[in-house]
């Protein structure tokens, strides 16, 4: 091997798949960073990531890898990359990415996902939102009318 030996950590997803990544990549997650600091750096570090499946984790790590070497890229380049990355995530993956970024404390990813969800909600009618997220309308027509009236009052 050429050059300095890179410090590696092993992350284990909830379904038991092991991911060996560079320490600097894993440390994009504040949760892992803290865990490594607290536990002292051992030769072979295994970190279980419960609740995060291997599919989600591999996508999360793709993000971490890009952002760990963010300094090598132009500012716009990383922004473009982020946009593309979150664009290609479907709604299911988006749920899991948000959950994973929250529990693993990856603020950048969380922000990215939250903005994406917000952009999906924005400009849609209540009915469109219900269809998108598979939500049942649990208001009676009378209640709906009352809220509409309330809204009118707000605007006056």
């Amino acid at each position: 091997m050429v050059g300095v030996k890179k410090k590696m950590v092993t992350l284990v997803s909830s379904d038991g798949v092991e991911f060996v990544v560079e320490k600097r990549v894993a440390e994009q997650s504040l949760f892992i960073k803290n865990a490594l600091n607290e536990g002292g750096v051992e030769e072979k570090v295994m970190i279980p990531i419960p609740k995060v499946t291997s599919d989600t984790l591999s996508s999360v790590l793709e993000y971490c890898e890009k952002h760990a070497s963010a300094t090598e890229f132009q500012e716009n380049e990383i922004e473009e990359w982020d946009k593309e990355y979150i664009e290609k995530a479907d709604l299911d993956l988006l749920y899991y990415l948000l959950q994973a970024s929250y529990s693993m404390s990856i603020m950048g990813l969380m922000e990215l996902g939250a903005k994406k969800v917000a952009s999906l909600i924005r400009g849609k009618s209540p009915q469109e939102i219900r269809e998108l997220f598979n939500i049942k309308n649990d208001f009676t027509p009378e209640q709906e009318e009352e809220i509409r009236r309330e809204m009118q009052w707000n605007y006056e």
Binding site: A118, P126, I147, R148, N154
Partner: peptide, 20 residues
């Protein structure tokens, strides 16, 4: 909450109609 907080405030009134 974080997702909803990113939706502009002006959209909030009609989002109330989605469900309880």
């Amino acid at each position: 909450f974080r997702c909803l907080a990113r939706v502009p405030f002006c959209c909030h009134p009609h989002l109330q109609l989605v469900c309880r």
